[in-house]
Simulated scan of single mutants.
Amino acid sequence: MSQDNIQDSNVDTNIEITPEMQAFYQRADAIIGIANSQLGSDAHSGQVGASLLYAAARYSASVASIGFIKGDDFAKEKDDIVEFYVKQYRQMLSDNLTDYAQNFDKYVQVNQDEKSAE
Rank of each mutant, 00 (worst) to 15 (best):
S62I: 13
S45C: 11
A35M: 03
R58E: 13
S62H: 11
F74H: 07
S51P: 00
S65K: 03
G71I: 08
D73E: 14
D42P: 00
A50K: 10
A61C: 07
D42E: 13
F74R: 14
S37D: 08
I31P: 00
K76Y: 03
S41E: 11
D73W: 07
A56E: 08
A56T: 12
V48G: 00
S41N: 10
Q47D: 09
D42Q: 12
G33K: 04
A35D: 04
F74C: 01
D73F: 09
S62T: 11
A35W: 00
Q38M: 15
L52P: 01
A50W: 04
G40S: 05
D42S: 13
I34F: 13
A64E: 04
H44C: 09
Q38T: 03
Q47P: 02
S62A: 11
A64D: 09
I34V: 14
Y54I: 09
I66C: 04
D73Q: 13
V48I: 10
A35N: 04
G40Q: 01
G46Y: 12
Y54S: 15
G33L: 02
I34S: 03
A64I: 02
D72E: 15
L53M: 15
G33S: 07
G67V: 09
F74Q: 06
S45D: 10
G33A: 02
G71A: 12
A35S: 06
G49H: 04
Y54N: 14
R58L: 14
K76R: 13
I66Y: 08
Y59A: 15
A43T: 02
G33P: 06
A61S: 10
I69D: 12
L53F: 10
S45Q: 04
G40D: 08
S41Q: 08
I34T: 11
I69P: 01
D73R: 09
K70D: 12
A35H: 02
G71R: 12
G33Q: 03
S65C: 00
G40N: 05
Q47I: 03
N36S: 12
D73S: 11
G71E: 09
A64R: 02
I66R: 12
F74N: 03
F68K: 08
D42C: 03
A61Q: 03
D73P: 01
N36F: 07
G67Q: 05
S51L: 14
I66D: 07
K76S: 11
F74D: 01
R58W: 11
A50L: 13
K76Q: 13
D72K: 14
G33T: 04
I69Q: 13
R58C: 05
V63A: 14
A61K: 09
G49Q: 01
S45M: 12
A64Y: 06
K76D: 13
I69F: 07
A61T: 11
G33D: 07
G67F: 07
D42G: 11
D72V: 12
A56L: 15
V48Q: 00
S41I: 05
A50S: 13
Q38G: 00
I34K: 14
F74S: 02
A61M: 08
L39I: 06
G40E: 03
D42Y: 10
S41H: 05
L53I: 11
Q38P: 03
